[in-house]
Simulated scan of single mutants.
Amino acid sequence: MSSKEETSLDSAPKNGAAAGAPEEQRLIQVHLRKIPLLAELDDAEISKVKGELRIRQYHKRDVVLHKGGSGDGLLFLLVGQLQVIDVTEDGRAIGLRMLHPGDFFGEIALINNSTRSASVVAMTEVLVAFLPAATAMHLFSHSPSIANYMLRHLAQKIQRDSEFRALLSINNAARRIYTYLALMQQKQPTPQPGAPIVLENLPTHQDIANMINTSRETVTRALLTLAQNGIVQKDAHRLIIKNPEALKKLVQGS
């Protein structure tokens, strides 16, 4: 995101206030067009959605959604990064997945008319758009493109959760880390033959540790081993998988 966009978005209203200024409205409409769920809506439908939105800004480590809260709306991440977390009975925070601009969340509690099943925490400064339940449910029932997208999304979510449960069942912590990277790799666009695979916006070592039930030190050691063996290369907030086949063999335990 450019510094100009950051400056403009910083002027957006805080803590749930409705966006009012023309420039703020224009910026919001631009961001809405980047949300895959809304991509096929026409201009009139987008304008209607925009008129119902409430824009909220949160600081790093703020809780955006609380587990057990009411499913009173659908939320869209416009700027920044969020993490979905759950808390075990012994009080440990377990990271479930990361959310990036264009993602939406809160749909399960909304559809089920139930309470939130997990919490969502800001990993950076974030800008979130809140769409009230009545408007969101109207879109689900009256927009074929949104209904179809939501069905695909829920099917993918079931598959992802199944993969994650299988990952957590692996006893060896290093193999869990390798498997986690392999799952992230599968979600990337298919590169040209022989080209490395780049994992953008890699979570911190602590966040990865929380997600796969191990320690930050174990994650650091595993990534260092991969780098020393020429399998990966760490580059700022991304990881370059230089040898996907070697990573696959480690996942398989060979």
Rank of each mutant, 00 (worst) to 15 (best):
L9V: 02
K34T: 15
E6M: 03
S143K: 12
P36F: 02
A122L: 09
K14S: 10
P203Y: 14
G73R: 11
D86P: 06
E40W: 11
D62R: 04
N229Q: 15
Q228M: 11
K248N: 06
E217G: 13
P203T: 13
L151T: 14
L99C: 02
M1S: 12
M137A: 12
N148R: 15
G91A: 09
L78N: 01
F164Q: 14
S162A: 13
I111Q: 01
I240E: 00
T135V: 15
I46W: 03
V84T: 12
Q83V: 15
P144M: 06
F105R: 02
E163P: 00
G80M: 03
F104A: 03
L96V: 15
N15P: 01
I35A: 04
L27E: 14
T225G: 02
R175C: 03
T88A: 12
L239N: 05
R116H: 15
G69E: 12
K249F: 00
L110N: 04
A122P: 01
T190Q: 14
L77N: 08
I108Q: 14
A209V: 09
V128W: 02
Q57A: 08
A93H: 09
L226W: 00
A195N: 08
D103W: 04
P101C: 04
L53E: 02
L139S: 12
G71K: 12
V126C: 13
F130K: 12
L32T: 06
T218I: 06
L250I: 00
L37W: 10
V84S: 03
V30N: 09
I240D: 02
E245S: 01
I94P: 00
D62V: 00
T115Q: 05
S114N: 13
M211W: 06
H66Q: 14
